[in-house]
Design a protein around this nucleic acid. Sequence first.
RNA 1: CGGGGCGUAGCGUAGUCCGGUUAGCGCGCCUGCUUUGGGAGCAGGAGGUCGCAGGUUCGAAUCCUGCCGCCCCGACCA
Length: 561
Amino acid sequence: MRISKSFIPTLKEVPADAVIPSHILMLRSGMIRMLSAGIYSFLPLGYKVIKKISEIINEEMTAIGGQEFHLPALNPREIWDETGRIEDFGDTMFHLKNRDYVLAPTHEEVMTFHAKGAMKSYKDMPQIWYQIQTKFRNEARPRSGIIRGRQFLMKDAYSFDSSWEGLDESYTKHYQAYQNIFDRCGIKYFVVGASSGAMGGSKSEEFMVKSDAGEDTVAYCNSCGYAANVEVAQSVVEPNERSSESKEVYEISTPNIHSIDELCEFLKIDERETAKSRVYIFDEKPILVLMSGNDEVNGTKLESILGGEVRPAHPEELVEITGAEAGSIGPIGFKERILADNRLKDGNNLYSGANKTDYHIGGIDLKRDVEKIEYFDLRTIESGEECARCGEPLDVFKAIELGHIFKLGTKYSEAMGATFLNENGKANPIIMGSYGIGVDRVLACFIEQNYDEKGILWKGPLKPFDIQLLGLNMKKEIVINESNEVYELLKSEGYDVLFDDRRDAQAGFKFNDAELIGIPLQVIIGEKNVKEGLIEIKNRITGERLIIGKHLLLDQLKEIG
RNA sequence: CGGGGCGUAGCGUAGUCCGGUUAGCGCGCCUGCUUUGGGAGCAGGAGGUCGCAGGUUCGAAUCCUGCCGCCCCGACCA
């Protein structure tokens, strides 16, 4: 493709609104442009890569028996009412104003709708159906360029099985297909156990990419490979030691002390001698959650223990419930349910709030003084804690979710009445799985993992072109002729070539553009070399230059690769 | 949704606190000449509802009010 006839609007300067590398580079290299917050257009160069990713996904899905669909983004509200997910999604779902339609954020409902009545017999299954299409979510805060948008390209697959063993098989197939897909794309990733959240179902795993731009936090053990979203991650934390003697409970005046750090500073004590209180509302009733020191409550763990959603109590509610403001709340005298983290188990001589603003209580013995107390693993784990599997220190870092596979079970088939007849002629709900990949995130993640100060470093099958051909002075007849000739030659050999044939651009300008776009191989036609029958090949990644006789060009390119 | 920042030409920005020429600069764009292996030089030129609306004032990019948009942190996130 000739650049002079293409639309590849590169930018020399960094757009003010872009912050993370992939966003900056996609804008600068002319792959995307923003239309509105979280809504991006793919320009030809960007879309070309998207299609390459899609093609890899298609091949791997076909390999496990997947069949591609094209589904409506516009959905009647009823099918979402059937599964109750209008409420689950809440404000995250887009609703149309002038007709009772929603914009689909995912496609369990539509796929189940089609499976219903079509999968009549156990003989009709297994099936794997998938699509690669735009999804819509009314994200409260889009961010990080393409990584979190209000509309995004997602591949989602659904498996339909007549038995739980069949689901296991479909799940395993997808797991393997996903590994193939990400490996082929050249993405460095890892797999974590995850919470299935509002999707429902039992087992789920996420394919993650380590990145500061990520929105998930994961724990990873470099030693044994244990990996889990911090929502569910566990570590070994021994309960605090119990002193041999319990002091009496006593009240302390602690004016303007609101945090554990302030309390420790004020009383000259260690944070492990304190019990932090958090009040949550579950099922319209308050629950006190006690944590050791500054340990953070893990909301996901709390919700799975309680079996439902919780929310933190508002400041006004705190006063109403406990009689004290935040910072002075504690277990002594708290009349509702009390949960405590395992680390506090049977602790004594603890300091906590007095349920009286600006007062704390010391000498608390949880065993003696707090009758109804239930202990659970409620902590959010931290970097450096011991791996629950092998005991080595865990690494905790941010990551981007690229893929997510779920064993859905019968949540959707039951809700929508999608049943089949089994061997005994009995109607059973179809057993489903759901498997997603953020296609445009694959692009962003690849760039996050492959760039330098000059631009993108493409390699492998995602590269938008094989070779960038630079004609350095396209006003000189000799360079024009030579580069046109080389262009035709490379094309005829099957290379996909981006030909910088711009007449007015300076050499340095072309070099910088080529490095920004980042095609792995550059073939450079300069006047001096042409006159000596020479041609230059440059490796974008290593910067290595080779000047060779023109007749050796094809051999040399084959050798490189 | 809470907190913070920003909005001036296609891009990046100065000016805004403290109101007062014709809103300035760099890049890009157009014309011509020169240059041609690391983001060219000279000359000439085009391009602005200063986010929108209202208000204060003799006078508003600048002050006030409301709204909209974008970015960052947080909350939320199948």
